[in-house]
Amino acid sequence: MSSSLKIKILLLPCITVLLASCVNLKHVGKFSETSIEGIEKYETISPGFSKVCLQDCQQTYIRKLQIHNTDCDCSQNQKADSITQVIYNATKGYFYGLSHLSQNELTNYKTDDFTEALATGDFGPITLNEADVKAYSDVSTLVLRAFTDGFRRKKIKEYVAQAHGPLLKLLHFLELNLTGNLKGKLEVQKSSLKNFYFDFIRDKKLSVYERTKFAEDYFQRITEIDKQQNELETFIKILREVAEAHTLLYNNVSNMSTEEVKKELAGYGRQMNKTISSLRRM
């Protein structure tokens, strides 16, 4: 039996065992990436608390027909924006961490130089042919991956389990601030605009043209606010999908690499992508 064949026979069971121990975490990485893409939509949607406050304040001066000495105190709203931003950053940061840990390329260490050094080296009486060198190199990569993948898998389990409670809480309060409070402020703004425009539109001392223009302005502003509110609602849908998918991972923390979990997680991913696309079209 040639030395090359002996090596291959010896290597075969090792490779089989090692391949079995390498669990692919790509689906967790993919889920994290989609979650990041969805959560980061926060930066493109609607105005924040401060902007709504400034618009309201300017509207007060418009009512008074005043454009001089028009100071606006929006400090509390700036605080509300900062708090929302902090929650957003923490949520995003967690998914970046999870994504880094579950990416495959992390343990796809480059062994090309190592292979080349073995192949071209003169080791005295020992000569290695290229195929054997490649086999050695593949095994060393597998050993390395088996070790790190096992370690990563254990760590990811720990992180998902530890983070689940606080993450759901952060997502819930992000929702409260955006669809509860910010959307509420926009609702107030709509009522305030109606209160303002109503009397102009019904004022018979004004010309029909002027009254029509007021009505047009009113509907235009209401349409803009409706659009912002819809964006907020769609964004919250993404946050809910993220929460549901993370709950799936948490409930299957000991078997997160089964085909069933992979399939369900992919389903959530497709749903999230759909919602992200609909937000883009707004």
């Binding site: 940061g93 961490g97 992180y159 530890q162 983070a163 606080p166 993450l167």
Partner: peptide, 14 residues
């Protein structure tokens, strides 16, 4: 509390 917990976990993953 949730913010602190998530920040710690994120730091650990990094």
């Amino acid at each position: 509390t949730s913010l602190k917990q998530i920040d710690t976990i994120t730091l650990e993953t990094q």
